[in-house]
Amino acid sequence: MEVRTIKVFTTVDNINLHTQVVDMSMTYGQQFGPTYLDGADVTKIKPHNSHEGKTFYVLPNDDTLRVEAFEYYHTTDPSFLGRYMSALNHTKKWKYPQVNGLTSIKWADNNCYLATALLTLQQIELKFNPPALQDAYYRARAGEAANFCALILAYCNKTVGELGDVRETMSYLFQHANLDSCKRVLNVVCKTCGQQQTTLKGVEAVMYMGTLSYEQFKKGVQIPCTCGKQATKYLVQQESPFVMMSAPPAQYELKHGTFTCASEYTGNYQCGHYKHITSKETLYCIDGALLTKSSEYKGPITDVFYKENSYTTTIK
């Protein structure tokens, strides 16, 4: 009895394709271990004539594949690729409408935090270190965002349907971005203890939790000093293409032309909904596939993004 075979390709990165001759009487799992086709788990399936010449994702289970996976995804987590594939199996079914010149995501599976993050990423200057993220990001900007969303979920250790947080998501993504040249110098002034300067680099240099107003941050924000008295913390120097200011959701007025974009969060910790506000020729609110415009805006804002380049204080 002759062994019926077909020729397929296996890959971990969709760049390096490895030619395989597979036995049609055995499952993919018996031949390769966990195997995925377009995100779908085909591990328990036997090869079919229609699979001839198709590319299958496999887990990096030998040295060659491990090197290829690390170079593309910059992670050695053995569960990463499987999590990416199972997320992709959902995100490829989502709709990605162009809204006001940006790629958004039609609401499904509690994905409003991903839509808000995706919209924000198209408006701030950011370059990702893992080629996987950078490639998928370019495709997302062009309207094909399924891979990018699935990668975000995998890097953030999230599953489809789980509630997510924009600030946490951005923080994970910033860790995989090139923020080497970003720098922030802060000064804390206390009447009792004097003053202390701190220099922050990388992710810490672009994120701040405690106030939404970048102007206020430049002037000074009140913080408790270690001595128990009130101290003032203010920005001395900022070198970065953008800054992200966050605070627990509270009524906040966004003035046209003073910011790049913002995240609105309605609801409580267990259950809520994100919308995205962007400042173009007027203010726009993007909620999944829905767009509304207004000249002014007041609502429960939790993150505001500002364009920056270089700032030095005039406070002496």
Rank of each mutant, 00 (worst) to 15 (best):
L121S: 04
V160A: 08
T75K: 05
S181Q: 11
T10V: 12
F305G: 04
Y284Q: 13
T169A: 15
L153H: 02
T226N: 11
Q230H: 11
Y284V: 11
R184T: 05
T313Q: 12
M26C: 12
G257C: 06
K158G: 06
D165T: 15
T10I: 15
Q31W: 12
H90I: 11
I277P: 05
T199Q: 13
V58P: 02
L235C: 05
T76G: 10
M207D: 05
T19Y: 10
T103W: 12
N268I: 11
G257M: 05
Y208D: 12
N61W: 10
M245I: 01
R4M: 12
P47G: 03
N110R: 09
K92S: 10
G39C: 07
S310W: 10
P248S: 11
D287N: 07
L235H: 02
Y214G: 06
L186F: 12
H176L: 09
K229L: 10
A136Y: 03
Q31S: 08
V243A: 03
Q216L: 09
D303P: 00
K191D: 09
S171K: 06
M85A: 07
K229F: 09
N309A: 13
Y57H: 07
D38C: 10
F148V: 02
V160E: 01
F70M: 13
Q222I: 14
G164A: 07
G39W: 05
S25I: 15
K298Y: 11
E168T: 05
G39K: 01
P249T: 08
D77L: 01
S246I: 04
L153T: 00
G194S: 03
N16T: 13
N14L: 03
Y28Q: 01
H176I: 03
A150I: 00
G29W: 07
P130L: 01
T292N: 12
N89P: 02
A205F: 01
H273M: 04
A289H: 14
V21I: 13
E52W: 12
G29V: 01
T64M: 13
V221W: 07
A154G: 01
A108M: 05
E308S: 11
N111R: 01
D62W: 04
K316Q: 14
S310T: 15
Q134E: 05
L88G: 01
D23W: 13
G29C: 10
Y274R: 06
T43G: 09
T116P: 01
Y269V: 06
V203N: 09
E2H: 05
C190E: 04
K54L: 13
N110I: 02
L81E: 01
F259K: 00
E204V: 04
A69I: 09
K93D: 10
W94D: 01
Q20I: 11
A205M: 03
G202M: 04
K93A: 11
Y274V: 04
S181W: 13
L291Y: 12
R139Y: 08
G161W: 01
Y57K: 00
R141V: 15
T103M: 02
K218I: 06
C190T: 03
T302N: 05
Y297I: 06
V99Q: 04
T76R: 14
L81T: 11
Y72V: 04
L81K: 09
G161S: 07
P131R: 03
S310P: 08
V22S: 06
N49V: 14
T5G: 13
Y113G: 03
V304H: 04
V304C: 06
K298Q: 13
E264G: 15
V166L: 11
E296D: 15
K293S: 13
Y214R: 05
Y265D: 04
G101L: 00
E215R: 05
D77E: 05
V206D: 07
F70H: 13
Q251M: 14
D165E: 15
T226R: 13
T120F: 01
S240N: 06
Y73A: 01
S104V: 01
K93C: 08
G39P: 01
V42I: 06
T43F: 04
Q230I: 12
V243L: 07
Y297H: 11
K218L: 07
M244P: 08
R184P: 04
T43Y: 12
L65E: 03
D287A: 02
P78W: 07
